[in-house]
Structures are given as C-alpha cells and as structure tokens.
Design a protein around this nucleic acid. Structure first.
Lengths: 140, 140
DNA sequence: ATTAACTCTATATATATAGTAGACTAATTT
DNA sequence: AAATTAGTCTACTATATATATAGAGTTAAT
C-alpha cells in the first residue's frame, strides 16, 4: 500500500522535475498546484532532503530543487524513504527483515515463499523506474 | 501489505487443507498448532465460511473443513476477503476503485500508470495461485 | 531591520490493526 | 432431557499508524 504521504512525495518530485530548470521552487507553490497540505508537505520534502533526493536554499528567495538528476532518482528508493520497506510482510524484507513470531521453519514457509514473488515483482518495477521515466508515463 | 489477519487466514487454510481427509478440524487445534490467538481465529474462519471458502459443522463433534477443493481456492480471493483490495492505491483498484481527491486527469497520472503495473504484477501472482499450489511451496 | 522561506519539534485526530470477552445457538452423548 | 462441546455473533478495548496542524526557530536577501 502506497500511503498518501508517499504519493505526495512522488507528486512533489514530478513537479520539481518539471520545474528544475527554473531554479528553486517554493513549498507553497507545490502545495497549491498539487493540492497537498502545506505543513504536511514541508515534512515530506525535509525528509527527502535529508536523504539526498532534494536540496534546498533557505531564507528569502529560497526554495527546493532536485538533489540529483531525474534519471538518478529511483522511485523505489523514494517510496522506501517515506513508507519503509516495499515487502508485503517483514519476513520477506531485505531492508527491514523481521522473523515471524510463529514461524517454525522459514525456508519451508509456503506463505513466505509466495510473497517473496510478490516482493520481487514489486521491487523489479519500482527499483527500475527513475523519476525521468516516471515523467514519461503521462501518456498511455 | 499483508496483515497478520490475512497471514493467519492462509496458515489456517494450509492446515485445513493438509487435514481435509480426516474430516472436521477444531478451531482450537489450528490455534494451538499454528500459534494463532483462538478468538481472533474464530472471526477469521467465520468470515471465510461466509464467503464460501470454508464450511463448518456446529455442536459437539463439530469443526471446520474446506468449502471447496484446494485447487479451487484462489489465494488472491482469500487475501481480498480479509484485507480488501490488492491494489496499492484505491485509484488503481478493480474491486474498490476510488478516485483521488487531487487528481486532475487520471489517464495521464504518472503515478497511477506506474502503480497499475504493480497492481497487475501482484494480481498476476496471487490470482494464479491456488491453495493446492501454495502447499507445494514448502520446498524451494 | 524587515521580510520571506525553510527547519524542527510537538501535538492532535482519525482510522486501522490486533486482540479479548461473553452471551448465544446448535448438535451430540449420556 | 440434561450436559457438554463447539461454532456464531456482537461489542468492546488497546495499540499503532496515517494524516495532518501549530508554532517557535533559523537563515538569507533586501
């Protein structure tokens, strides 16, 4: 499940990507144009900045801009920053593995082996899509 | 994300499938063997019964048993019964579609078009796996 | 000095998840 | 018929997560 927070993050990144040549962009501008609550968006952008996805300029004439090229920003990475692991259950997570309490033998757990496939399919898509590729998806 | 409830449901179905020839199985037995809280499991099995996945016999000598053959029980169906839609966002859901509040043009929404792929990949796996196939997954 | 804009921490509210409790109903055994 | 066993149903509670909101603090340009 993609949270609204993560969806907002992706919307903001798309907006920033489209406006990247113009220099910095205000949080308020993104908020208004994309319909995202401003104070909520502040937190999201700050987190993306701390993770190196974005950069910012403070004070008057300040704003946000991309921290790297759109072709270098991986969607899976962004979603993980905001929502945590992509894995549908903790026991199939690479980044935040956690054993199941009840599980006797993980290797033979049928449910785990099935949802490993789901994880792999999800990761395959999201870790192989960059922000610049995402921009192209506005046409079917 | 697969909830613990849905994982419990799948564990219970696997257990019932393995014991299907023996006749009925007690909730208490499944609970003890699979480490699932009994009263919680009651609710889960009841829901699966209402949806035709399971059948039960009440009173003394009663218990649960599969409502159809393991090869007829689709894992995607079970997960939907317990957790709701498989779609990662409501706007890509077939069974529980809901438009996004902020979305201007859904067809050109890049995020939607990307997560349609994720949905399709997930559905492809879960709707093409039956309970009998899941049983086979205990070997790698 | 003033203003604009990002930064940081705390708090609030709503919803979902996970689990518990107890009374009720049905079927079997004695 | 009574006792026992086992599923059925409804309500409740606790905790966590998601979705914000508030406000004081910091930085940089004019």
């Amino acid at each position: 499940m993609l949270s609204k927070k993560a969806k907002y993050a992706l919307k903001a990144l798309l907006y920033l990507s489209k406006n990247n040549l113009k220099g910095v962009t205000l949080i308020a501008e993104i908020s208004e144009n994309e319909g995202i609550p401003k104070k909520f968006l502040e937190q999201i952008l700050l987190e993306l900045k701390k993770q190196g996805i974005l950069q910012s300029k403070r004070g008057k004439e300040g704003g946000y801009f991309l921290g790297k090229a759109p072709s270098e920003i991986i969607i899976g990475h962004v979603v993980r920053i905001i929502d945590g692991p992509l894995a549908p259950i903790p026991c199939v997570s690479k980044m935040a593995y956690r054993r199941c309490d009840e599980c006797v033998d993980e290797k033979t757990c049928e449910i785990r082996n099935l949802f490993l496939l789901v994880r792999d399919a999800t990761i395959e898509i999201l870790d192989n899509t960059t922000l610049s590729q995402l921009e192209q998806k506005n046409i079917l």
